[in-house]
């Protein structure tokens, strides 16, 4: 009774609101997802597998995994270092530093890619020197890694900074006062305190590292079988009217997204549970 009194909208209005929200979700999120899988499997599972096993596709999968395997650990280290510095110490220019961490979020990915072309490209600042020493960065794997690291830098740090701020430095001071060195303090005290947040950040970082298109597209050079990541490969196949191939590779990326989503929900559930102070 009391519920009805507070919620004053009529049955019709409620139905309309819920219905339109569902329709919106269905049209913009669910339908494309279904379309990706149905297009990929349109000509049967056999064709799907053939498209995935195609050497250039396999090369793009390998490259994407390699890029993620290098850039995610790098950003775990950078993210931890940055959030540690920001939350445990006070220093000049701290707020500027915090703002800078968000830069990759606010800059268009294409611009991020262009920055690296400007720096390391043949006509860039360091281009001639790199050329003379036979180091290839742009249109090669190192460039893709640089661009990916840049784009995914905020994920881990963004996740950890608020968490570590909230936790303060009492626990660390307690550990140090009991004789723990820096590494022991980090390993036995800080890391367990932030592990769920860190894992969450890593998950988001990984999803973006594998899915990044814009910045990588600028620096990669689109060399088939060499510098094409999965998102770039999808575009190429699509432009060549190889729809089954394009959607097959795209469906793998979609699966990654779904796995990330599920893992994220599980983590959030665990995270809340621990945050509630319910113990183990």
């Amino acid at each position: 009774m009391s519920q009805r009194a507070i919620v004053s909208e009529s049955r019709f209005a409620r139905g309309l609101l819920i219905g339109s929200a569902l329709a919106f979700l269905g049209f913009f999120l669910l339908l494309p997802l279904v379309a990706v899988f149905s297009e990929a499997l349109k000509q049967g599972v056999g064709t799907f597998w053939d498209a995935v096993k195609e050497p250039d596709a396999l090369a793009s999968i390998r490259l994407t995994l390699l890029i993620a395997a290098i850039s995610v650990p790098l950003n775990i280290v950078f993210g931890l270092a940055a959030s540690w510095a920001i939350t445990k110490y006070s220093f000049r220019g701290k707020s500027l530093f915090i703002t800078l961490i968000d830069l990759p979020f606010s800059v268009s990915p294409v611009v991020s890619g262009l920055i690296f072309v400007l720096l390391f490209g043949a006509h860039g600042w360091l281009g001639p020197w790199l050329n003379a020493h036979d180091v290839k960065i742009i249109f090669a794997v190192p460039g893709i890694i640089l661009a990916t690291v840049f784009i995914t830098f905020p994920f881990v740090a963004r996740e950890l900074i608020p968490l570590m701020m909230e936790q303060g430095k009492d626990d660390e001071e307690a550990a140090v006062s009991l004789g723990a060195n820096g590494w022991q303090t980090f390993w036995h005290v800080t890391l367990p305190n932030i592990r769920w947040g860190l894992l969450y950040g890593v998950l988001l970082c990984n999803a973006r590292a594998m899915g990044e298109f814009g910045a990588v597209s600028v620096v990669s050079g689109h060399i088939r079988g060499l510098t094409n990541t999965m998102p770039l490969h999808v575009e190429i196949l699509y432009n060549e009217y190889d729809f089954v191939g394009a959607f097959a590779v795209a469906s793998l990326l979609a699966v990654l997204a779904l796995v990330t989503l599920v893992a994220k929900s599980v983590l959030e559930w665990r995270f809340d549970y621990h945050h509630g102070g319910a113990g183990h």
Partner: peptide, 8 residues
């Protein structure tokens, strides 16, 4: 410590 800072 004031809030004990126990390792939870």
């Amino acid at each position: 410590f004031q809030h004990y800072a126990l390792f939870k």
